[in-house]
Amino acid sequence: MIDVVAVGLICIGIGFFAAGSIGLLRLPDLHSRLHALTKADNLGLGLVALGIALVTGSLVIALKLILIWLLVLAASAASANLIARHALDRREQP
């Protein structure tokens, strides 16, 4: 039963990753691409991490996975902010 839930979570997570990647390739401008990439991938990674944590069934590994997810969340939020700000600065001062 837990395995089914885990596989479901991982599959949904992969779906978010795919959506984020398609958004990165297809969306017209930098800001919407950033939006697609950082938001969808963060959720995707969270779901995949949750699924893997359920499969391993170990609390320590689950905590490590959550820590990894939080670090990626912080890093991707900050880098998205940096890239978006840099692009805005460039547009304002050509």
């Binding site: 912080a74 890093a75 939020a77 900050a78 902010n81």
Partner: peptide, 15 residues
């Protein structure tokens, strides 16, 4: 740095 990078650095460096 802006506030976002500043906050990230403050968390990440000790970690």
């Amino acid at each position: 740095p802006g506030p976002v990078l500043y906050g990230l650095i403050r968390w990440l460096v000790p970690l």
